[in-house]
Amino acid sequence: MVSVRGISKRYGAVQAVADVHFDVARGELFGLIGPDGAGKTSLLRIITTVLLADDGAASVDGHDVVRDYRTIRSMVGYMPGRFSLYQDLSVQENLDFFATLFGTTVEENYDLIRDIYVQLEPFKQRRAGNLSGGMKQKLALCCALIHSPTLLVLDEPTTGVDPVSRKEFWAMLRRFKEQGITTIVSTPYMDEARLCDRIALMQHGRIMQTATPDEIVAGFTTALFAARSANMYALHLDLLAHRNVESCYTFGEYLHVTLIDSSQGAVQTLSDNLLQRHPEFELISMEPTVEDCFIRMTNGVS
């Protein structure tokens, strides 16, 4: 559905996107995962034909993003990261406006937006500028869906959104998938990577890896441990100072630790050493998360 071949984009001295390649299959929910400044927005703007690349080629359903931009624009629903609806138009007026732009009506594609629209309906006379963050996001999504796009492109739809609303949003994306819509979504939240069919991990304009979340996690070949104790800060320092500790990062209530030597004997030695200063020391083996993988890749360890 989407093909990206060697796309690069530079702004002055900053290489925003550097030789990026990936494909998105029809019906796939594809995630671009990476922090601010990774190049996600530039890449999405190139795919949606609103930004020209310096180098490389990209196509949507066989249409070239430069030559066939008009065709692509009619097929794509794009929700930019920054709220870009008309603040001084009401909810209803914004929807009607976007429907008209694409030569359709709200009624024609109402089925697609119904689930979201019912939540907006009580405020349909309210100006978009006066909606809460969560409601603005829902309206923007409705406007992106109003012409029944074949490709939905969402730039950081969940940034700044609380964990519960984020879960609901992802449930909605799964429902679009069931309706056959191909979606590319970008996010800085590593935990959301798990909810995609496939993901590309981005940093500094480059894609470090493109794979399914399971494949990414399977690529973490070192044993990973979760450690905790009563004084987490002291434990962190003590682990970093231990000769057998390769890396140690905070992960909520645990520290995630990799070792230079993960053999049973070496792990036992580590536990014995740490128990002397931390009577409640606990070390368990665990499955890595996508965030563990991302940290490992950005540190150049693999």
Partner: peptide, 20 residues
């Protein structure tokens, strides 16, 4: 106020070191 939103995982953790 959401000081680490959108920040990469390593920088996010370094930021918490500063908070401590």
């Amino acid at each position: 106020d959401e000081p680490t939103g959108g920040v990469d995982p390593v920088t996010r953790r370094q930021f918490w070191d500063m908070i401590y």
